[in-house]
Design a protein around this nucleic acid. Structure first.
Lengths: 195, 195
DNA sequence: GACGATATTGAACACCGTTCAATAATGGTG
DNA sequence: CACCATTATTGAACGGTGTTCAATATCGTC
């Protein structure tokens, strides 16, 4: 319930709008109550972020193309669609923590792993020879690439809104690059006498 | 002089440590003075960020390998080295603005363009047939990819510090992907009967 | 030395996250 | 039902923040 209210406020006005007094007012309580259920505001917003990440994972998992290349591109589109639709929620996920919050709790790490696992699965058919470790690196690199482009093109930090092509086009370019990169790796691995 | 002090404080303790009273104390003035020279704190930190971006551009421009592929990888290394060495300054560049600051002034946009232009030049030999526009997209995508990986692996926001290979390895993987992607594009362009 | 322009001040304002003793509501037990 | 222990909620307070602005000090120039 508290998380609901916080989520709504962040979605509307960013973390700045989701202050203790506003959240409390939104649910008819007083600020003190929040601190009986969460260690601090960062902790609360982290729960909001967990939901957001879960939402991304759901959005990504609802993509199901048969062709691996199409699948990857469709996931990239879903990623862009989700992050632009939930702009402020997504931005909140990357804001600095005032106090080092407990971002290492098992349940929270597991949440962050979900979208990563989906990406990893999608990459599998494109690089069948790779180890789990290699695939994880590829998946994280790909996620990072998507994230970075969105930040640079759509983000409104001190660096951001750099003039360029629309984000989807750039992201598709990068996806094609990753596909080409994986293909090149397979080829060179075969040349060096691997399985 | 104000910028100097702010830069030092951000480098040491992040933007949280660079508050008006601390900055003023560091230079022997009072908070009010800062507001005679800058519209607000965001504006001041933006000047700090401009310096940081300039520093990155300088770091990137000092890379000069003869082989284009080596050049790109060396630039990626320089990027990682710079952003990890100046962790807090770099993080400040992507923090949200409290009040929509004037991030669109010409001199500021020009500063942001500097590292991008260097990347664009480095990409030139790898995709000689591309238009300026295409190259800009490629450069921005590449920057985004680097940025995203660093954020995911080294960032300490609510999403960040995801377990993976060290950032340099992942970044080199991505650079190889971009190179492969550009090569693939050249090939397909030639196949389709281009110059 | 006097005067206008400029720079600096410091106290105040509104707001923030957070704490905690006091208070209210709750629920199980005889 | 009455009782009490447990739990939840409160609201006032504290120290901190960015920011403003009339009053003050400093400076350059004639």
């Amino acid at each position: 319930m508290i998380i609901d209210a916080a989520e709504r406020l962040v979605a509307q006005g960013g973390t700045a709008a989701a202050n203790a007094r506003e959240i409390a007012a939104a649910i008819g309580y007083t600020p003190g109550t929040i601190y009986n259920h969460f260690a601090n505001l960062d902790d609360l917003i982290r729960h909001v972020t967990a939901r957001t990440v879960d939402g991304l994972a759901t959005a990504l998992s609802s993509v199901s193309e048969t062709d691996p290349v199409r699948q990857l591109h469709a996931m990239a589109d879903a990623y862009i669609a989700f992050t632009t639709k939930n702009r402020r929620l997504w931005a909140a996920a990357f804001e600095p923590l005032a106090k080092a919050s407990a971002t290492r709790e098992a349940w929270y790490r597991a949440t962050l792993e979900r979208p990563l696992a989906l990406l990893q699965d999608a990459l599998k058919p494109l690089d069948p020879g790779a180890s789990e470790e290699e695939r994880r690196v590829a998946a994280l690199s790909t996620w990072g690439a998507l994230h970075g482009v969105v930040t640079l093109v759509e983000g409104d930090g001190r660096i951001g809104r750099l003039d360029a092509a629309p984000a989807p086009e750039m992201v598709h370019f990068l996806i094609d690059c990753v596909i080409a990169g994986l293909a090149a790796r397979r080829k060179s691995a075969r040349r060096n006498g691997r399985s």
